[in-house]
Design a protein around this nucleic acid. Structure first.
Lengths: 148, 148
DNA sequence: TATTGTTATACTCTATAACTATA
DNA sequence: TATAGTTATAGAGTATAACAATA
């Protein structure tokens, strides 16, 4: 028996599984992001993270960007398409390897990043409100070791 | 500058965000689940978790089940539909409140749970392979405090 | 031959709103 | 009035497979 205090249910082995708590925490973070930033700006965490990465790595290729986000090429495509359609970034043929696209943030994308950065930090502060600085760093270190 | 060792990219503020690492870890866990269990059995973590919860809480309603999984009613519906179609569980009108469905695991569902439980534990062991028991418990405790 | 970007396709999850039957 | 389940709809993420252009 593993009764949950709040709902009185038997949660079986779920409370002992990192996978379950990962899912719960991620759902929670996603909802907070949506409420603070996503719904108003029609953006997702992945879109914003990618835009951020293109800004600080101008000329990056889609494949490399996808690798940094642990996404395959087709999924990366879908995200980049959305950002391109909103004129937040541009695809430019690479001069050195014409298979590649060199991604560049456009002025509108730069403005969005400037505008949303404070919200991103408030979001981060919100989901980690119950952790002190040491615990937050500890959590990050432990999460980085979830790998196969 | 926050250069990533593996890919040489500047990751900007992402490495400092719990939200980013949550996403990375969850992606990793999801892929491991898929490789071990999901693809072969055409199940998802949420489906299996719900089936588990119905088994140990026979007669539970969809709304309560959804709450335990932090999902709304419509999303819960979609998952239950799939489990019902495969004859893994049944919906039965509640005798005490006829608005509710009392969910019950069927023999085939019970067999699936028996069959997949070892795989679930191997999956859990795999994603936490780089954590000792103390660190794993610590990670769970920290994840439970990601809330808004 | 291998890689990059692309297209097509499919499935799942999530969310919202509105409907019904019951309480 | 409120709740439980349902339906319809939409958007996003993920994955696979195959194709063209280029290396």
């Amino acid at each position: 028996m593993h009764k949950n205090k709040e709902n009185g249910l038997d949660m079986d082995i779920l409370p002992a599984l990192v996978g379950y708590h990962l899912r719960m925490a991620q759902l929670c973070a996603y909802r907070d992001f949506n409420a603070r930033i996503g719904r108003a700006t029609r953006t997702t965490p992945a879109q914003l993270a990618m835009l951020l990465l293109v800004e600080v790595n101008p000329g990056i290729s889609q494949t490399n960007l996808g690798k940094a986000m642990s996404m395959d090429r087709a999924s990366t495509m879908a995200v980049i398409d959305k950002l391109e359609k909103r004129n937040w970034l541009s695809r430019n043929k690479s001069l050195v390897d014409r298979r590649k696209h060199a991604l560049q943030v456009l002025p509108q994308g730069r403005a969005i990043l400037r505008k949303l950065r404070p919200g991103m930090l408030r979001h981060e502060a919100s989901i980690t409100a119950r952790l002190d600085e040491r615990e937050k760093q500890l959590l990050i270190d432990l999460l980085k070791r979830i790998q196969t």
